[in-house]
């Protein structure tokens, strides 16, 4: 096994977040709103809770079980979103989604191996206009592991649904 290949997916910052996830706790049911999402391929369940005041995210928490990728994604996402306005949060979510989808197909050569171009995006950090994804950009490596995309996006899908729910009220 090539440890360097694994390192493309499991960057140190991801392993750190997975081991010690931030905001991994249960907020009381009386606080804010919650959404639950399933990863149908592995059965993982993720609950995300968010407290919004005057259109600004005051606090977040997540709960559930997941792989290193989905735990780290949830942890880093809460880190990036707390304190943001809802429109800014939506922008970050869109940029994150683009980060994971960007040249996913071109990035792969015929053998399913990955070309250098796709790696360079990750190395220079992801910048989409002026949206700063911070540590979340470490997840760019997931593009090279398409079977793990669902793990990386479980939390962001939950948060997107949660914001829609909150804005709908």
């Amino acid at each position: 096994m090539n440890q360097a290949d694994l390192g493309i997916l499991y960057r140190q910052v991801i392993l750190d977040h997975a081991k010690n996830p931030h905001h991994f706790r249960t907020l009381p049911a009386s606080v804010g709103q919650q959404v639950e999402k399933f990863n149908p391929s592995c059965g993982d369940v993720l609950q995300v809770r968010m407290v919004v005041l005057r259109n600004q995210i005051q606090d977040m928490s997540f709960d559930g079980a997941g792989c290193a990728i989905s735990m780290a994604a949830a942890s880093m996402l809460t880190e990036q979103l707390i304190g943001q306005s809802l429109p800014a949060a939506r922008e970050k979510l869109a940029a994150f989604s683009e980060l994971l989808m960007a040249d996913q197909v071109q990035g792969q050569n015929q053998d399913g191996l990955f070309t250098d171009e796709s790696q360079s995006v990750e190395d220079k950090g992801w910048q989409d206009g002026d949206v700063d994804l911070g540590e979340l950009s470490a997840l760019a490596g997931v593009r090279q592991f398409p079977t793990r995309l669902k793990c990386a996006t479980l939390a962001s899908h939950a948060v997107t649904a949660l914001i829609a729910k909150i804005e709908g009220e």
């Binding site: 079980a65 997941g66 792989c67 990728i69 793990r148």
Partner: peptide, 13 residues
Amino acid sequence: VHPHDVATVLDMA
């Protein structure tokens, strides 16, 4: 270790 992470490491081998 989550099964998905196990399977990815195995796949690399």
